[in-house]
């Protein structure tokens, strides 16, 4: 665990030593505000909840999380520091976990900094704060799944732009896999069990379930398993082609 913490600290300080974290957090806060108030009609709805805020999170993450994930391995490859990292007595697993947790903390911090919205809604009415907490947790878990996909794509290439595009496409597939865009492709020929399985991969469905205030095991488990699977895939890719 000590090595994970060491890598974590280095990664986190690197986020804040470069403009990455500041730009990310600023843009995240601005965009989530814009979405909530202008597109989500926060005031006009006249309801004391944060649904218009959380509804846009999958779409915000779709572009912002790959942007923060794309550098995680690509930059190491490009600068050659991966050779240093992998020849230090740090295992690949420790490096993957440290890097993931650092970026996930930045995402968590961005979410926490949206607290003025929570204050606003509490000032204006009496929202169900339990639901809001659940939605925050769900949003953070979902961002972790996006991040794990982004890291896996970053492990594939030393080109950050390629890593970004691959991650956005893959994340998009997972966001919409419950909707007709994806399901139509299966409808005509696949048995219903396949369609149900594909639909159950949807980030949207699982997130919306948690955002309603129900922290069910299958939704939380889904995101945790997604994180695990994509991190593991990234680990295998790094071990396999770290020198390329």
């Amino acid at each position: 665990m000590g090595m994970v913490a060491t890598v974590f600290k280095r990664e986190l300080s690197s986020f804040f030593a470069t403009p990455v974290a500041y730009v990310f957090i600023t843009i995240f806060l601005i965009l989530s505000g814009v979405f909530t108030f202008f597109i989500g009609s926060f005031y006009e709805r006249g309801q004391a909840d944060l649904l218009p805020f959380f509804n846009f999170h999958p779409w915000l993450y779709l572009f912002l999380v790959p942007a923060i994930a794309m550098r995680i391995w690509s930059e190491e490859r490009k600068s050659g520091s991966i050779e240093l990292l992998m020849t230090l007595p740090i295992t690949t697993l420790q490096a993957v976990l440290g890097k993931f947790l650092a970026a996930w903390s930045v995402l968590g911090l961005s979410l926490l900094l949206t607290f003025p919205l929570w204050l606003t809604v509490n000032f204006l009415g009496n929202p169900d704060n339990g639901v809001i907490v659940a939605a925050y947790i769900g949003s953070w878990l979902m961002s972790g799944a996006f991040l794990a996909i982004g890291m896996c794509m970053s492990a594939l290439t030393k080109n950050q732009v390629v890593a970004f595009i691959l991650a956005v496409v893959l994340c998009f597939v997972f966001v919409v896999s419950g909707s007709n865009i994806i399901l139509d492709a299966f409808k005509d020929w696949a048995p219903s069990i396949v369609i149900d399985t594909v639909a159950s991969f949807s980030f949207l469905t699982h997130f919306e379930a948690i955002a309603k205030g129900v922290i069910a095991l299958n939704d939380v488990g889904y995101f945790l398993i997604s994180i695990f699977v994509w991190l593991y895939a990234g680990l295998l890719i790094i071990e396999h082609k770290k020198a390329d």
Partner: peptide, 30 residues
């Protein structure tokens, strides 16, 4: 790897860190 000190080709390092921060990081890992 614990008993090896290695300078890879091109001396890669974490460019966003200062030498002092970098050496502290390596010291911790070591």
């Amino acid at each position: 790897q614990q008993s090896i000190g290695y300078l890879p080709e091109g001396a890669p390092a974490y460019g966003d860190m200062s030498p002092l921060q970098f050496l502290h990081f390596i010291a911790k890992v070591r």
